[in-house]
């Protein structure tokens, strides 16, 4: 609060029209572009789709940090025969047809339940919390010195039946260990 007071006291407010094209893209503009690329470099099992032209769903669960940038990057784009669609919902059961699921920070309290529910679903789960990948999430964004990087938990993607291209893996920080994998 005191910091808030200070910043309020000392800072000029950012203009509402700030963020023009002359400035670096924001974190979530870049993350939206990454989600688009995940769709390009991940292969889903055929069972994930109804048919050969079913759209690829890019979903946001919980409060949406992307603003309009996800729509701009993803919506209406085609990958092969499939269009990309953006869906958003506050609850997992309200979402259907998701191939990529971005789990917002607002859901962190429910993360174990969400991941458990998606345990065997062919859905690429993407999150941002520090322990997302180690909890069995598949892709975790990290920020390193103002650059967006990502971890991929290969045991988790394998459990979900997803094939991640070597190109994506070569750029990712690969981690192992999947707490959601049931011992057999």
């Amino acid at each position: 609060m005191l910091t808030a007071a200070l910043l309020a006291a000392l800072a000029a407010k950012a203009p509402a029209t700030d963020g023009g094209t002359d400035e670096a893209p924001t974190e979530y503009q870049v993350k939206a572009a990454f989600l688009f690329n995940f769709a390009r470099f991940v292969e889903w099992p055929p069972t994930a789709f109804e048919n050969a032209t079913s759209p690829i769903g890019v979903c946001v669960l919980g409060d949406d940090p992307f603003g309009d940038s996800l729509n701009r990057v993803v919506a209406g784009k085609m990958l092969g025969e499939r269009t990309l669609m953006v869906r958003r919902a506050k609850k997992l059961r309200e979402l259907g047809g998701c191939e990529i699921l971005f789990i917002s920070g607002s859901e962190r309290g429910h993360l174990p339940e969400i991941l458990e529910e998606l345990r065997t679903a062919p859905v690429l789960t993407v999150g941002e919390s520090e322990d997302f990948a180690t909890r069995g999430g598949e892709v975790q964004f990290t920020l390193e010195e103002s650059h967006v990087h990502f971890l991929i938990n290969v045991d988790a993607t394998e459990r979900a039946g997803l094939k991640v291209s070597s190109k994506l893996l070569s750029l990712a920080h690969v981690v192992h260990g999947d707490p959601l994998r049931k011992k057999s």
């Binding site: 950012a14 509402a16 029209t17 700030d18 963020g19 023009g20 094209t21 893209p25 924001t26 974190e27 979530y28 503009q29 870049v30 939206a32 572009a33 688009f36 690329n37 949406d64 940090p65 992307f66 603003g67 309009d68 940038s69 701009r72 990057v73 993803v74 784009k77």
Partner: peptide
């Protein structure tokens, strides 16, 4: 938040795809 800046700058939001 970054999202906020984007919302207010939707016209300028670049397509990085």
């Amino acid at each position: 938040s970054p999202a906020h800046s984007q919302q207010s700058a939707s016209a300028a939001s670049p397509d990085l795809s």
